[in-house]
Design a binder for these strands. Structure first.
Length: 278
DNA sequence: AATGAAACCTGACAGC
DNA sequence: TGCTGTCAGGTTTCAT
């Protein structure tokens, strides 16, 4: 469910609500765990830590923790991070302790204020992990909103894969998902099946600007709510109102009235206007 | 090395 | 009501 704009919205909301809180205790569900790190390590790291900040890196939510090293020395503040990937259906919600525990709740973090931070994920594609390296968590690819144009161009050089697949490849850019890839390609006037390496410099310029424009507009709108996505407060995003091709198969292109086409690329449905996109 | 298909999961919805 | 098939905002793994 969440791509960069949704994750950004969620991370901002969470940061606002729980920065500075301490973590009292952690409950992790059993079952085939959505955990990349061992449950023991996650629990041990989170418990008694202080939440210093929450932010987005790619499609990941990074919770910066401070371990005050409770008993020993004063300033033995160790840095560790709790990384949450929401997969397709994951959500992180802050709620009062007496709120009903939803089905598919896999983790409950009790906060100093008495509230709880809960991880819910029906499809269990989401992942929780702990990072301790001194450099901190690093995304596999470049941040689409920060990358310079030359670096962006370099990503697609020599790639025979469809440009749509390249945009979805998190090792190149991290954060672009299916909705925003389609929307960006529409705005740039480029067909999703075009081989990445065949794009001209002009086309790449348009794509570069379109990606940033679409992501920024979506962040302003609080993300896209297609099925059940809601932010940290339970509010849906509004960007779906501005989708020009995604989910509009058969409907007229907003520019030229040609029916929007839907095809499958790398197993993902892809929407485009056969007239406006070449 | 690079590409694409399949696998991982559950739920919602359409059609019969 | 209930069955079947399809689809879903993501990523990893396994064959080519």
């Amino acid at each position: 469910m969440p791509e960069l704009p949704e994750v950004e919205t969620i991370a901002r909301g969470l940061a606002q609500q729980v920065t500075g809180e301490s973590i009292e205790s952690v409950w992790l569900g059993s079952k085939p765990e959505p955990l990349k790190s061992p449950a023991r390590e996650i629990a041990r790291t989170l418990e008694h830590a202080r939440i210093a900040d929450i932010r987005r890196v790619g499609k990941h939510i990074v919770v910066d923790l401070e371990n005050s090293g409770s008993s020993r020395k004063r300033s033995s503040a160790q840095k560790s991070q709790w990384i949450v990937h929401l997969g397709m259906t994951g959500s992180l919600v802050v709620c009062p302790p007496d709120a009903e525990v939803e089905k598919h709740t896999h983790a409950i973090v009790r906060l100093g204020s008495g509230r709880e931070l809960r991880f819910v994920d029906p499809r269990r594609f989401g992942r929780l992990s702990i990072v301790r390296s001194s450099n901190g968590f690093a995304a596999s690819g470049l941040e689409p909103l920060d990358v310079g144009f030359e670096l962006f161009v370099g990503l697609f050089r020599k790639r025979k894969t469809p440009i749509k697949s390249a945009l979805l490849n998190q090792k190149l850019l991290s954060g672009v998902g299916n909705i925003y890839a389609d929307e960006s390609l529409f705005r740039a006037g480029i067909r999703p099946r075009r081989r990445a390496a065949t794009l001209t410099r002009d086309e790449l310029r348009r794509l570069y600007e379109s990606v940033q424009q679409v992501l920024n507009e979506a962040i302003l709108a609080g993300g896209s709510s297609i099925n059940d996505y809601v932010d940290a407060r339970g509010e849906p995003g509004m960007f779906q109102m501005q989708h020009r091709v995604y989910g509009r198969e058969g409907e007229p292109c907003l520019t030229c009235r040609t029916p929007v086409k839907r095809i499958v690329i790398a197993g993902r449905s892809s929407h485009y206007c056969p007239q406006c996109q070449r």
